[in-house]
Nucleic acid binder design. Sequence first.
DNA 1: TATTGTTATACTCTATAACTATA
DNA 2: TATAGTTATAGAGTATAACAATA
Lengths: 169, 169
Amino acid sequence: MSDVKPAEGPVNIGEAPSSVGFLLSQLGFVMARRFQQVMAPLGLEPRQFLLMRLVAFNEGKTQQALGEALNIPASRMVAIVDELERRGLLERHPDPADRRVRRLYVTAEGRRLLQQALEVAMAHEQRVSAPLGPAEREQLLALLHRLADDQQITAGVHPDLTTPDPAGC
Amino acid sequence: MSDVKPAEGPVNIGEAPSSVGFLLSQLGFVMARRFQQVMAPLGLEPRQFLLMRLVAFNEGKTQQALGEALNIPASRMVAIVDELERRGLLERHPDPADRRVRRLYVTAEGRRLLQQALEVAMAHEQRVSAPLGPAEREQLLALLHRLADDQQITAGVHPDLTTPDPAGC
DNA sequence: TATTGTTATACTCTATAACTATA
DNA sequence: TATAGTTATAGAGTATAACAATA
């Protein structure tokens, strides 16, 4: 019960042995934040960028199909597409055969912005990879892919917070 | 303006060339979620675990000093410490010399729980590292540390969302 | 007047589910 | 009855700043 002598020095960050899990978690957050920052000047959030890119690769797909591919719930898709459409970056087209569905298309302006965004993304990738040589970078990518496969991560789909729990511990 | 023929096949996830940034972001989210899941049975959120661990390494430090070390705002610290104290895992002790400050101590029960949590964390680390051999794991750690240094990541401190932007792009 | 810890308010994001119009 | 998209409601988490006690 007696108080220990209150140390007044600097706080000691308990040095744990290097951890793959914690390092990846730290780096993942920082990478996501940096990417968000470099995209911000274009007015694109990471999620909007991923959707624009997906629509460009899949013109005419339904809003629902695209949302499912990115694990974005239908009710969230509405607001996201609303804004991108309002800004003239993509369009909802009605389907003559089924008037419930909305098929998404990228506009000419959307394509221009997407092109810029892709260039920004490539520059970002170069920047964050800068500390590594080409061979080291390939080595890292190979190792990360091994872990990603083990975790059943789908290429191109970000496991934001949308997926509660796929399966298997 | 004429509609393109609406493709009805599967959605094509545009295969981008492998990206260190995106892979790290994906893996980081998954690692954080898995860690959260393995800690849940102990009733500890990752943030609570980090704080418990920090207090154990720094008994008698003030609430404010500990919060700053983890980049947790003072107003958030209150609720976090409230709950851990309510559960009997740590205690606020008044400082006789300055009655404004609260110095934090881990209780015996807190120590027991922390010990369990550390074991869970080690098992988690082994699990996520399982796809790699010992040499590969060391290789990966070395490469990740290079990137972490470049991003000015502090060992043991998670850049959750608390740090808006340190400095330098 | 400055500082530690606390509390209160407002805001953002999200999930959930109700709702509409079609099928 | 089922489905695509939409809207509405409520909840969690947070930042911000006001506040009380003490220095």
